[in-house]
């Protein structure tokens, strides 16, 4: 494993170069064909790569669309800080939306449960935001290798009016001849990173020096052990159950979401090289730390039918 951290583009592997070009082609296609696209920016490593690709795709123009963050109000504070820094650095328009009804009803991941919280504060909130600004195409950073039901997701994922995803009514994608035609009320979700794997994401992040949220790197953090998972207490809102106590442990995150729903792993990986080395050795899948996926094997498919990304 090489230890250089400042690889320039010409040293990108053939493989990453191909992935990069394919993604750039997809990004351009949407901008050329849709009236009002938006990029879902979830602040994580995949969003970071997607945004980086967008900056490249339209150069010397700026990406001709805003970023949209669906804020559940339960993201790690580090994530919000990173989000605002990134938008400012590139001079991009950042839209933030929180489901006002959910907020009024006091929906939260702790007492409402992960399912209801995700449904109201993420899925519903996303639909509200897309409707509010009238976006007809939305980029998402999902990858096909993340989860089984994602393996069949299209790059251009068709949603009928009301944002409904019907797995039986998706368009075949031949060659790179995407069918971008939709009727009024219909929308498309576009996944430029469909063919990337988690390892590709990290190798590219390293090669291109893409800034990531510090939470991906191991550091001593206050965590509690709950149901066999390590949860970081990012603020006072997470109550300790009887018998639970906070400990400072050397941990990091492979996947970032709402902090009470994102489990940490014990790790000593403090650099991108460490992370990649750890990945090559690891025996657990990335989404195992996502508490919202594990209810049932097909739970992602179900959430997607409801309008989740």
């Amino acid at each position: 494993m090489t230890t250089t951290t400042t690889l320039s583009r010409t040293q990108l592997s053939q493989h990453l170069k191909r992935l990069e070009s394919e993604s750039i082609g997809i990004l351009r296609e949407v901008v050329a064909e849709f009236r009002n696209p938006v990029m879902l920016y979830s602040i994580g490593k995949d969003s970071g790569v997607m945004l980086h690709l967008a900056l490249k795709a339209f150069y010397p123009s700026k990406p001709p669309f805003p970023l949209l963050h669906i804020d559940t109000t339960w993201k790690f504070r580090d994530m919000i800080r990173h989000r605002d820094e990134v938008a400012a650095r590139y001079g991009l328009k950042l839209l933030v939306h929180t489901n006002p009804e959910g907020l009024a009803r006091g929906i939260n991941p702790i007492t409402s449960g992960s399912q209801l919280h995700t449904q109201v504060m993420k899925t519903e909130a996303l639909k509200q935001a897309l409707d509010k600004w009238g976006f007809d195409a939305a980029f998402g950073g999902a990858r096909r290798d993340e989860e089984k039901s994602r393996a069949k997701e299209r790059i251009f994922s068709f949603r009928s009016a009301g944002h409904v995803w019907d797995p039986r009514n998706q368009r075949p994608e031949l060659w790179s001849l995407f069918n971008t035609k939709i009727s009024k009320g219909e929308t498309i979700r576009v996944f430029p990173l469909s063919n990337w794997t988690e390892l590709d994401i990290w190798q590219y992040t390293r090669a291109e020096s893409i800034p990531v949220v510090p939470l991906y790197f191991a550091a001593p953090r206050p965590v509690l052990e709950r149901d066999g998972q390590l949860i970081m207490r990012d603020d006072e809102r997470l109550p300790l159950r009887p018998g639970e106590s906070l400990q400072m442990r050397m941990v990091r995150f492979r996947s970032l979401g709402c902090y009470p729903l994102s489990a940490a792993i014990e790790s000593t990986a403090t650099t991108l090289d460490d992370i990649i080395a750890e990945m090559l050795a690891t025996r657990t899948s990335e989404r195992s730390g996502r508490l919202i996926d594990s209810d049932e094997a097909a739970s992602m498919e179900k959430k997607k039918r409801d309008g989740y990304f």
Binding site: S13, E266, R283
Partner: peptide, 22 residues
């Protein structure tokens, strides 16, 4: 929860040098 210290991987993903096939 794994600590990531296991090293039983025998076939590792590419990127570890050597002539690269597309």
């Amino acid at each position: 929860m794994t600590s990531g210290a296991h090293t039983e991987v025998t076939v590792s993903p590419s990127g570890a040098g050597g002539p690269e096939k597309a």
